[in-house]
Design a protein around this nucleic acid. Structure first.
Lengths: 226, 226
DNA sequence: ACAAAAGTGTTGTAGATACACCCATGT
DNA sequence: ACATGGGTGTATCTACAACACTTTTGT
């Protein structure tokens, strides 16, 4: 039973949101062969005895310094020829980050890390474009039946931001009145007393996602759906 | 970068349907330590250079001889302590099988393989109960938005069988008239001219899932939903 | 003739969509 | 005063849920 030369990596697809209409993804430029100089998803080898999630957090920390607000497993990619170095199986993760945390620190590996709009992507190393495509599909699908959109906004946000985010994610226009009715009817947003005004126009109220309330409703079998 | 002692396995959760109301899952009895004598999911080590799906098919063939009608990746389990032998990461798959193929051949490993109702399960080895739970959740969720139910029925089936299958899967009663209306309205079933009569009662028409038609509709953005 | 399973329609209701004007502020 | 974005209500339509009787066969 020859298993010793199959290696295990993790890769992370981390999405962010840049107002008003851009969904962005975190990429690093590879410093070493193979694919030296090519853009790729952050990731790397899993250490023996290390959990998969720990490996993701460690690699992200090492390569980009970002702090996630959400992480879940995406899919495992295991085609024997996906890495020219040999049989490397990669467990891909799917992460979200708040606009607060978009700054990238100089990485310990001195790899270059940048945010790219998912509509203007460079050529990617390995099968990372496949991984990214799967992640985008997951993001678009999931945003419709779980309240993960809030993980892409600061904890206090304007309704208009939520609206723009959903339009960017789903890549279509949304009726403002119907959207507001639907979301507020779910009862998972707290309306704060604070208002912000930014330039001309009527100042807007701040809202906050009430996670506790969401879980209560979920227990009762009342589901989030857009 | 110490990765050499992390090993990779696959495990398969294979579901079947036994009329009229039983959802069953395929388990094997372990022949060796650890967990010798305990029931477990079929699976085993991935060979170097072997794709994950190939490993699943191979292990299923070796241990049980079953032939699947559907297979998809479920989730990867990587807690460092999930296997007493060391760090073993397992990619779990989710499979379906038609009633035609429920017979288990004597396995080359002489392991004992049996079908168990998902409502009367033995204690399972490793974290296989977690894997199974996740598979059951996937099955229940997926059956609502993709036409995988047909993979659990013979290619020609009675409407009543489909109904019973869905009731068993969702563990609730379904209104016969509404169910029939909805499914037929999707336009993905061919109504055959053949009828079968089994004991007393009016004979029932046979139906067949029209996969080609389903993909056409899917292309057009018309989705299956129960 | 009776028991057993298959087959079939209508009505009410809730949720989704479509749609346009007033409000509060900055310049 | 005007330009800009925030905030709101109503009418229509569509999809789902509830519900009971007739038909065809075996015995």
């Amino acid at each position: 039973m020859n298993n010793d030369s199959t290696k295990l990596t993790v890769d992370a697809v981390v999405f962010g949101y840049r107002a008003p209409k851009e969904i962005i993804v975190l990429l690093i430029q590879r410093k070493f062969e193979p694919f030296k100089g090519t853009w790729a998803l952050p990731g790397g080898f899993v250490l023996n005895g290390e959990s998969l999630e720990d490996a993701v957090y460690r690699e992200l920390q090492e390569e980009t310094g970002v702090e996630l607000s959400y992480l879940e497993q995406l899919y495992t990619f295991g085609k024997p020829d996906r890495d020219p170095r040999g049989h490397v199986v990669s467990v891909a993760y799917f992460g979200l980050i708040k606009p607060d945390n978009l700054d990238l620190v100089a990485s310990t590996d001195a790899t270059d890390a940048h945010w790219f709009s998912i509509k203007e992507l460079p050529k990617l190393a390995f099968d990372h474009q496949d991984i990214l495509n799967r992640a985008i599909n997951r993001l678009r699908a999931k945003v419709g039946y779980e309240p993960i959109g809030f993980e892409l906004l600061d904890s206090k946000f304007l309704f208009g931001e939520l609206e723009n985010l959903y339009m960017s994610l789903l890549d279509r226009t949304i009726d403002r009145r119907n959207f507001r009715k639907k979301i507020l009817a779910l009862g998972i947003l707290d309306e704060l007393d604070e208002k912000v005004s930014q330039g001309p126009g009527r100042p807007a109220k701040l809202f906050q996602f009430n996670e506790k309330r969401y879980f209560e409703l979920k227990e009762q079998g009342i589901f989030f759906e857009i």
